[in-house]
Design a binder for these strands. Structure first.
Lengths: 236, 236
DNA sequence: TTACCTATCTGGTATATACCAAGAGTTTGG
DNA sequence: CCAAACTCTTGGTATATACCAGATAGGTAA
């Protein structure tokens, strides 16, 4: 069925969004306008839009409309260049908002770090932007013994940098897990997208040189906002 | 709008598929049957199914029906344990099909490896299964000078193992890129899914100890078939 | 100026219906 | 007994329509 009409529609819309002259400010015309222009119904048109969304070419923001997606951000989750630094290095504008800090137990963190389930953590929750688009919601859980008074600092910048600088931690053993997911209600709200939107989850577990648990964190990215890029030397 | 009916539907279907007694052989009842059972239309029901598909809980195979997805495969793209080995190690049944081998230029490979665009490569295309479900379509392009007579070997097993064993190559510098994608027509056909299905692309560029180009490859995975798992020591 | 309200625009959800095309299984003809 | 033909079932595509709820912008009142 590669001759389905909605696939032709997809092609034509793809051409449209690749033409920088087509419309102002990366915002697509409304679904109703596009449906009329292409002589079809909103239902069919939305199939084509969903297709392009899957390809990562467009995205929607709540009930505001469809937008042409900017290039993906290159991101190396094994390094701590600091979000602000690597976003700027790619000619983009970073911003970080701290949504919440508190101290409390967290089961997944405890399990990942091999600690008792009632172990309290320093918890930081933040939201990060690239060019004013919210692309990432993340939570970090830090073992208080490793970094006392952590929560009195400034979390709009690199946390790993602080762990190394203020407490001399090494972050020697890092375990990384990446997988596609549907973004859940809470994160969706923070990112201004519908729950169920395609996302990419990055989970990290970090131990220090003596294999003592240091930190666990979860990043929820919009799926088309990033490209994971890792460089490795030897060690196979 | 968290009280949308299709979200209730999603919840009930989620319960249904988590109940191992609910139905035989991981196959869901047909959309028409489910729609009737939940007193709604196929259109709304399909929204709920799409939601669960995004969560990675179910998948569809062409026009055959919907199936409960098995657990994700843990996969470390930085190591070469060999597909067969790590699939077996997780208690699953691997299978590999070689779809094509030839010699020809390939622009993305040439660009990634820094070679002239007309540089010919040994090209291998294969499809890999876990428990008889096709989950991965991949292509490899190997620089002929590094591995002469490569194409006379057996490609149902680890290629990296052969590069090391038969030609003493080191694969010292590895560059990895991961990103979500919509699976394209050709790969979709090979995997028995609809074009546009959510996928994860893994691209690797490999140089040897002297930084000579060795190999470039692209893996196209069904998005809910895998979890990338990487362990790192030091080096931050 | 500021704060609130309101009309209007947007995408989001839902029903009802129809026909198409590929898979799978069954029947039939050799 | 096997292969070809047919039928039934499945998901895939498409139209037409309606109403809902959040976002926005403009206007109005304090």
């Amino acid at each position: 069925m590669s001759d389905a009409y909605y696939l032709h529609l997809t092609d034509r819309l793809r051409d449209l969004i690749q033409d920088p002259e087509a419309f102002e400010d990366d915002r697509l015309p409304s679904e109703r306008v596009l449906a009329e222009r292409f002589h079809t119904t909103r239902v069919t048109l939305r199939q084509a839009l969903a297709q392009l969304e899957g390809e990562g070419r467009i995205h929607r923001s709540n009930r505001r409309g469809w937008f042409v997606s900017p290039p993906r951000l290159d991101y190396d989750p094994t390094r701590d260049a600091g979000f602000n630094d690597y976003v700027k290095a790619q000619g983009r504008r970073p911003r970080t908002e701290v949504l919440l800090t508190d101290i409390r137990p967290h089961r997944p963190a405890a399990e990942a770090l091999g600690l008792p389930l009632d172990q309290p953590f320093h918890h930081i929750r933040r939201r990060r932007f690239v060019d004013d688009r919210a692309v990432l919601s993340e939570s970090l859980w830090v073992v208080p013994e490793r970094a006392p008074q952590l929560l009195e600092g400034d979390f709009t910048h690199s946390l790993w940098g602080q762990l190394r600088g203020r407490w001399g931690l090494t972050l020697a053993h890092r375990s990384l897990r990446l997988y596609s997911e549907a973004i859940r209600e809470q994160e969706a709200e923070e990112l201004g997208v519908a729950a169920g939107t395609a996302g990419l989850c990055v989970r990290r577990t970090i131990l220090d040189e003596q294999r003592r648990p240091v930190e666990y964190d979860e990043e929820h990215w919009l799926h088309n906002a990033l490209c994971i890029a890792v460089e490795l030397e030897n060690s196979v």
